[in-house]
Design a protein around this nucleic acid. Structure first.
Lengths: 213, 213
DNA sequence: TTTTTTATGTTAAATTGATGACATAATCGG
DNA sequence: CCGATTATGTCATCAATTTAACATAAAAAA
């Protein structure tokens, strides 16, 4: 069968569903209707059903959705049931913060090691994650074979590092630099976290709000 | 005249335009056509013109757009020419990282102070930003009158803190907690930075890529 | 067992967003 | 100064996304 392409709009909602379905599970709720879930999440029931049906639909008429089944299905769709291996490039402030605080495993990701320019010798670790000098990138990647890279290095290094990573066979990039890498590298999926763009949309809405008052 | 509502899709592109127009300025280019700009950014010329025309259009037939004028116009639209006062709630790892490394002023934002639960006495600063105990929130806000708050605290505290901030007259929130605050608080603009949702869309695309191979 | 209610999956309509087409105006070269 | 070219602003079309409608099936109630 010709797999129909799932729109990014739908994909972007899946992690939200996952979050709310987990909340339901935690509070002991075992079944849920599209309308109840929609109300919780501020969506329409129609959209919830439409979204789930993109993946075949996992509900039953007259009953609704089994919460546990739903959770497992969404986890599978999002590919967060397995341990995707990741490396982190640049362990300055942001990189370190992610290693220490971000719950990678909840996203099906395991940080196997980090790289930085200012690392001497061996034995360096942050939160049990070994940190290597970036000169060892190629060697380490041959042994570890990571799936994705977290880019938390200075923006001026972003493009050359991306080229290098792709050369080494990286399959996806989580990009925290303010550089639009997808323009130069469209061969692998790249997901951006652009703080300044996010903040600027907020300052825009702030002004709008103030004008209306 | 009845101001036509600008779609969020357009707004989300404005910071991107701003970035590229600044790059042009830095390389000494004084005029640009929609087609050149579109090519740089991976958009269509039509969309570029359509977007700018939402705000009245600042080009000239046969000439294109004056880069400096464009920059100033976009900066005005985004409201990043002034110094919007901000406070930061929670100076753990992420909050500290933002204070130390993020270029707030490039987004027209000035961090006036931070708050945390584990702060004793006076005189605490991070990168010249004074840090107060969260018990002093109401007092300090009366003097400083900040426009927006950066939420970098544990998620369990997010809702009550948001209520408190709105009570004190905050006008916008940049939300780094994995809580959908807009569902409970729709009276002010709230912009989310949801790391896990971002990463999960990437693991999804990673799987898609691998299946296709 | 039968009826009523609930609630999905799916198709159709409406809305929103992006692209293409083009008339028109300003620039540039001769 | 004038024709050719460039390139905008705008309107019309096309595509994508969201919402609404409804037939149908399972569950719950009687």
């Amino acid at each position: 069968m010709p797999e129909k392409k799932i729109s990014t709009a739908v994909i972007r909602r899946m992690p939200k569903y996952y979050k709310y379905v987990n909340q339901l599970l935690d509070s002991g709720i075992t079944r849920i209707s599209s309308s109840k879930l929609a109300e919780m999440m501020g969506l329409t029931a129609s959209q919830v059903r439409q979204d789930f049906n993109c993946f075949g639909g996992f509900g039953q008429q007259g009953y609704g959705y089994n919460v546990e089944f739903l959770r497992d299905e969404i986890a599978n769709i999002l590919n967060i049931n397995k341990k995707n291996k990741a490396i982190i490039i640049g362990v300055g402030n942001l990189g370190r913060t992610l290693i220490n605080n971000f719950n990678f495993s909840a996203c099906g990701v395991q940080i196997v090691c980090g790289f930085d320019v200012n690392v001497e010798g061996h034995g360096n670790t942050i939160n049990n994650v070994p940190i290597y000098n970036v000169s060892e990138l190629e060697t380490v990647m041959q042994n570890e074979v990571p799936d994705l890279a977290v880019l938390t290095l200075p923006k001026r290094l972003a493009k050359t590092m991306t080229a290098r990573l792709i050369e080494c066979g990286i399959k996806a990039i989580w990009n925290f630099t303010n550089v639009d890498l997808h323009l130069d590298f469209d061969c692998i999926p790249i997901e951006d976290v652009h703080f300044s763009e996010s903040l600027m949309t907020l300052t825009y809405r702030l002004k709008e709000k103030q004008n209306k008052k």
